[in-house]
Nucleic acid binder design. Sequence first.
DNA 1: ACCTGAACACCGTTCAAGT
DNA 2: ACCTGAACACCGTTCAAGT
Lengths: 196, 196
Amino acid sequence: MPKVSDQYREARRDEIAQAAIRCLERNGVRDTSIADIVAESGLSTGAIYSHFSNKAELARYIVGRFLIVRLDALEARGRAGEVLPPREVLESMLGAFADHDLSPALVVQFWGEAMVDADLKREMTTTAARLFGALATATLPWARSRTASEDAAAALARESARSLAALAQGYIANTAVFGPREPAEYVAAAASILSS
Amino acid sequence: MPKVSDQYREARRDEIAQAAIRCLERNGVRDTSIADIVAESGLSTGAIYSHFSNKAELARYIVGRFLIVRLDALEARGRAGEVLPPREVLESMLGAFADHDLSPALVVQFWGEAMVDADLKREMTTTAARLFGALATATLPWARSRTASEDAAAALARESARSLAALAQGYIANTAVFGPREPAEYVAAAASILSS
DNA sequence: ACCTGAACACCGTTCAAGT
DNA sequence: ACCTGAACACCGTTCAAGT
């Protein structure tokens, strides 16, 4: 394995992805052309196509990179054995999301893209499966306190992961369409409504 | 005002929109070209551009038509004076959504499009403002039972509308990305998580 | 007024040729 | 092996010409 060459390749891919993200945040998915990324990166069309087989694969690379960073942080908390109620997990996820990373607007655009790009959808769902695992680990102690058996606790934690994801997606979509909102406020208002 | 001509124009616009929706459901927003809509509708390129000034305006027309139908149904319930806890309002909204109309996948694609098309976003937010009004009307009796003054009740109902919308958006986005799910199950699981 | 369809500028992708 | 950039097929949009 040519380690140095692989490292170089990866660095080049990241360089292209970073230029692409700058274009995406500026103009959106629909309005950033390969020509824009060429201009932003200072490379040529062919150079980009020698690192990514097409525009969709570049999008997939960006999404994967992004999700994996989020994931590592979450898994660290899960592994540390912190006992967190799901509501707190949700709030800290949303807080971290609001702080940095991709804008909600861009995330929603990627969801839309995934509806039409089967590979991007697969990328998102497989990485999300890992995310679900991490969420389930984080909420397992809470699930134990609400169920009789260990099996039931594991099942509840697993089911809760999907709902946690749905609640986070709701925050992202709502925030993208109707403007920013405080995570804690969203969580509190949603809890109040659902307890009715 | 030439009533007959207006009716004809509207019918023609609807005819084009219906052909476009068939293409959109089949291939997604990204992969339906004007040429596809031309073929599906049996009209010519120029004919379509004589009814819509561009592809984005056609998208706006479709979204507007769709939201207004949903809205009329909701406002009817609100006006009928039914006393519904927000959780029931949410569940019946999601049930109606799952039954017919645009697929969640297409809705998510339109959100993505709105991130990049300011006019489409405006169309969505202004129609959503009417939706919020209808939701607030529907939840006002519930809000009264939880607050001291009429002003506080109105404020709570108004705030609840945005959260209701966020919860519905979460269901739509989650369902689009991870596959169908029973509305009642989603609502129950979300409630359980948030009460933790 | 509504419609036709060729023409135009621009898009994503390819590929022969360079280093 | 990585890169260049002209070339290609196709896209959204326009517009002179028809009815």
